[in-house]
Write a protein that binds this DNA or RNA. Structure first.
Length: 189
DNA sequence: GTCAAGATTAGT
DNA sequence: CTAATCTTGACG
């Protein structure tokens, strides 16, 4: 069993954390069953200066956990149907976060299929939340406790296996933020 | 109170 | 390309 990521892992710049999370394992325990897999895609949201971030216009009831201590989940609901799972990074008071956009499923495939049916299991932020049964009940969840929902270290991922590019779904953001290479993908997925 | 828009997905 | 579906946050 690999090591659960500690708070100091999360207490960094979100771009670094987004890159470092590739290859780590996002795990969920539900009804005594473990499900999850390797993280294959992430996006960094760089706080109050980032026009793509929910924190761009300050703290609101929805985004308040982004301003809290690192190592906690920020989960919200969009489009009337999808949940998004983020991890809070940086220091308390600084609204940095990383959106987890994709997983390569490894554990609990059957349990995930119960929710996803015959469709792709976790190659998108909304699909991943459905497969792992992550909803707003996990907003502010402490990921360092290793209970119900947590992340473990994975094998080292070389830069040659990583692609960085602009984030998706943020056409509303300013050009400099729309184009910033803050999305990371593990190649071959 | 009203209203437009959304860090997406599945189906045409 | 577009519908689905409902919460949020801005405005008044």
């Amino acid at each position: 069993m690999a090591e659960i990521l500690r708070r100091d892992f999360y207490a960094r710049d979100p771009v670094e954390v987004a890159r470092s999370l590739l290859g780590c394992r996002l795990l969920r325990r539900v009804d005594g069953v473990c499900l999850g897999g390797r993280i294959t895609e992430t996006e960094a949201y760089v706080g109050a200066e980032d026009s793509a971030s929910h924190a761009y216009r300050g703290m609101t009831p929805r985004n308040r956990v982004m301003f809290g201590p690192p190592g906690h989940a920020y989960v919200y609901f969009v489009y009337g149907m999808h949940h998004m799972f983020n991890v809070v990074t940086g220091a308390e008071g600084v609204p940095w976060a990383v959106l987890i956009r994709g997983l390569a499923p490894e554990l609990g495939l059957d349990a995930m299929r119960e929710r996803r049916g015959r469709r792709p299991l976790a190659d998108g932020p909304g699909k991943l939340c459905q497969a792992l049964a992550i909803d707003r009940g996990f907003d502010a969840w402490d990921l360092t406790r290793g209970q119900a929902l947590w992340i473990e270290a994975g094998e080292q991922v070389p830069d040659s296996a990583v692609a960085a590019g602009p984030r998706v779904g943020i056409d509303y953001a300013l050009p400099q933020h729309r184009e910033a290479p803050w999305r990371f993908c593990l190649l071959g997925n």
